[in-house]
Computed example of a mutant assay.
Amino acid sequence: MIIKILGSGCSNCKKLEANAKEAVEKANVDAEIVKVQDIKDIMAYGVMRTPAIVVNEKVKMYGKVSSVDEIVKFIQDER
């Protein structure tokens, strides 16, 4: 499973990345977390507001920091 954090590296992006790492541990899955910071790559997902989270190439949330529990649900939906 690949989880992508889309954003410029701002504090909200870093918080989302930390929440994603915690969610991966909580869900007990083997996942790679990738940061995507290039604006062209972010826009390719149709995301206009960051941070955003993408699980297995599906945009799950954008424009806010998802909670650990929300991310666990995103992970479970993609299993």
Results as ranks from 00 to 15, higher is better:
Pro51Leu: 07
Gly7Thr: 08
Ile2Lys: 15
Asp69Asn: 09
Asn28Ile: 08
Lys64Phe: 03
Glu78Trp: 00
Val24His: 10
Asn28Tyr: 09
Ile33Ala: 11
Lys15Pro: 04
Arg49Ser: 13
Ile3Trp: 05
Met48Thr: 09
Lys26Leu: 14
Ile71Pro: 04
Ser67Trp: 00
Gly46Tyr: 09
Glu25Lys: 15
Cys13Met: 11
Asp41Lys: 14
Tyr62Lys: 00
Ala23Cys: 12
Val65Gln: 03
Asp69Leu: 01
Gly46Met: 10
Ala20Pro: 12
Ile75Asp: 01
Tyr62His: 06
Leu16Gln: 15
Val36Ala: 10
Val72Asp: 02
Asp38Pro: 06
Val54Gln: 04
Gly63Val: 02
Cys13Ile: 11
Ile53Cys: 06
Lys35Arg: 15
Asp77Arg: 00
Val72Leu: 04
Val68Gln: 00
Ala52Asn: 04
Met43Thr: 10
Ala44Cys: 02
Arg49Val: 08
Ile5Cys: 09
Ile2Asn: 13
Ala18Met: 12
Ile71Leu: 01
Val24Met: 11
Met1Trp: 02
Val68Cys: 00
Asp30Ala: 11
Tyr62Gly: 01
Gly9Tyr: 11
Ala31Asn: 11
Asp69Gln: 02
Met43Ala: 14
Glu57Gln: 06
Val59Leu: 09
Tyr62Asp: 06
Ile3Met: 05
Lys35Trp: 07
Lys26Pro: 11
Ile42Trp: 02
Tyr45Leu: 08
Lys73Gly: 02
Gly63Thr: 00
Lys4Ser: 08
Ile39Met: 14
Ile3Lys: 06
Glu22Asn: 13
Asp69Lys: 01
Ala27Asn: 12
Val47Cys: 10
Gly63Glu: 01
Met1Ile: 05
Val36Gln: 10
Val36Ile: 15
Met1Asp: 01
Glu17Tyr: 14
Leu6Asp: 09
Lys58Met: 03
Lys35Gln: 14
Met61Val: 06
Glu78Leu: 01
Met43Asn: 11
Glu25Ala: 15
Val47Glu: 07
Ala52Pro: 04
Val59Cys: 03
Asn56Gln: 07
Glu22Asp: 14
Asn56Met: 03
Ile5Asn: 08
Ile2Glu: 15
Val72Tyr: 03
Gly46Asp: 10
Gly9Gln: 10
Asp38Ser: 09
Val34Gln: 15
Pro51Tyr: 07
Lys21Pro: 11
Tyr45Phe: 15
Val55Ser: 04
